[in-house]
Nucleic acid binder design. Structure first.
Length: 199
DNA sequence: GTTCGGATCTTCT
DNA sequence: GAAGATCCGAACC
């Protein structure tokens, strides 16, 4: 697939719905940062009404981007090491976001391999910390709009059949583990972890 | 194949 | 002082 096959995502992607709807809608969308990235194959939804979210408990200096306008980035430091990228969604003030957990690498492979220090295509963007490293995301991207450089979002052409999307519990959390707010492209080999492990 | 610990730092108690 | 929306490599089946 080339960039010419894709359409501007702003026409079809809305960030004004509940985060679990936006998270599902984002599967198959191409995310680029300075022209580097790929197709989103895994996302998770978070919302200030449930205790796993960084926005739970209201706005704070660290999470203020989540309470800003939808369609912007929220970037946070994970375990003191990684930078993880979220898309702010829903109407302003609700503190909802979608964590970008994995991409199928399609653009700027050499740049991503260089940043990751790794050749294996499957492992370039298979996890939120890996996505951040491969795309060169850091603190300075927090709060930036997603419809302007360095970001670009490209939707799948509308005449293609919808992707099969799998749903499951979110990864790496200890609260609100019952919510099925992890979404992934069915059968993708670029997921951070398989869905329904061991059958 | 799996399990385990270390890295590293911000936030909260 | 502990926990956390993680990743990596070593050790061990």
């Amino acid at each position: 697939m080339t960039a010419a096959d894709l359409l501007p995502a702003a026409l079809t992607i809305g960030f004004d719905g509940p985060s679990h709807e936006v998270a599902r809608r984002l599967i198959g969308v191409t995310l680029l940062v300075d022209g580097v990235g790929g197709r989103i194959v895994e996302t998770e939804a978070y919302d200030s009404t449930e205790p796993a979210a960084h926005s739970f408990g209201g706005p704070r200096p660290r999470n203020v981007a989540l309470f800003g306008p939808p369609g912007h980035a929220y970037v946070y430091r994970s375990y003191g090491i990684h930078w993880c990228l979220n898309f702010v969604c829903r109407e302003s003030g609700h503190g909802a976001g979608v964590l970008i957990r994995a991409l199928e690498p399609t653009h700027g492979l050499a740049r991503m391999r260089e940043r990751r220090g790794l050749d294996d295509l499957r492992l370039l963007c298979a996890g939120p910390g890996r996505v951040g490293q491969a795309l060169g995301v850091d603190d300075s991207f927090n709060g930036k709009a997603l419809d302007a450089p360095p970001f670009a979002l490209l939707a799948r052409p509308g005449d293609r059949p919808p992707l099969a999307v799998e749903v499951g519990p979110r990864i790496g959390i200890s609260k609100a583990i019952e919510l099925p707010w992890r979404f992934g492209e069915k059968g993708s080999r670029f997921l951070s972890k398989p869905f329904r492990p061991a059958g």
